[in-house]
């Protein structure tokens, strides 16, 4: 499904300085029963965010009104675990368009790119700087510049560049998805398939 274009995002960020945040934390399996892509943001980080009786856990960052923004910052190895795209949907549906970490799990990263959420992988040192800047001032603004492939901490001017392949970058800038591309080469696929034994 096509998504909004991504170009330059300037926003404050929500810090989650925990490592190995897995997809079962991002969206627990019991919330995967929907047959449409709707409402997953309500259950983002469900069991860290709410008590069993449905009341908010006051110490969890999403429940702290001083933190807001369209950028989520997580610790190393963010998104490990299952292939559920629902995790990326939950991140998107909650309102995030960008996740920053020093390391991403592969499938989660792909899922994000396929739905228009930009995963920005930075060095461990830069990630520390990001967490420190938010700790100092929760309203710290960050600029995520996809055309230049840079992320900047506006208050300090500290900047780092990030990698993304040229194909995916063009897709995000234009709001295209992979199926649009594949549907344009079905003749080539059909020809390829005619030789396959399976």
């Amino acid at each position: 499904m096509a998504y909004d274009k991504f170009n330059i995002l300037t926003s404050s960020a929500v810090p989650l300085p925990i490592e190995n945040v897995d997809t079962d934390q991002i969206i627990p399996a019991r919330f995967l029963k929907a047959t449409e892509r709707k409402g997953f943001g309500d259950n983002l980080f469900r069991d860290w965010r709410y008590n069993n009786d449905g009341s908010e856990k006051k110490d969890f960052v999403l429940n702290n009104p001083i933190y807001s923004g369209r950028i989520l910052v997580g610790g190393k190895n963010f998104g490990s675990g299952s292939s559920r795209e629902h995790a990326a949907w939950a991140v998107y549906d909650y309102g995030f368009r960008c996740v920053v970490s020093s390391f991403f799990a592969d499938i989660f990263r792909n899922n994000c790119l396929n739905i228009g959420v930009l995963p920005v992988q930075v060095s461990a040192d830069f990630l520390d700087d990001v967490f420190r800047a938010i700790e100092k001032d929760p309203n710290t603004q960050f600029e995520v510049n996809l055309p230049n492939q840079t992320i900047t901490i506006k208050s300090t001017g500290a900047q780092e560049s990030f990698d993304i392949n040229a194909y995916k970058k063009a897709n995000l800038l234009n709001g295209f998805d992979d199926i649009d591309y594949l549907l344009n080469i079905t003749d080539q696929i059909t020809e390829f398939a005619s030789d396959r034994p399976l």
Partner: peptide
């Protein structure tokens, strides 16, 4: 794979 990729395989028998 994720669900977007499931859709790709259903539609074109390929993924990127």
């Amino acid at each position: 794979i994720g669900t977007s990729e499931v859709e790709m395989v259903l539609a074109t028998q390929c993924i990127m």
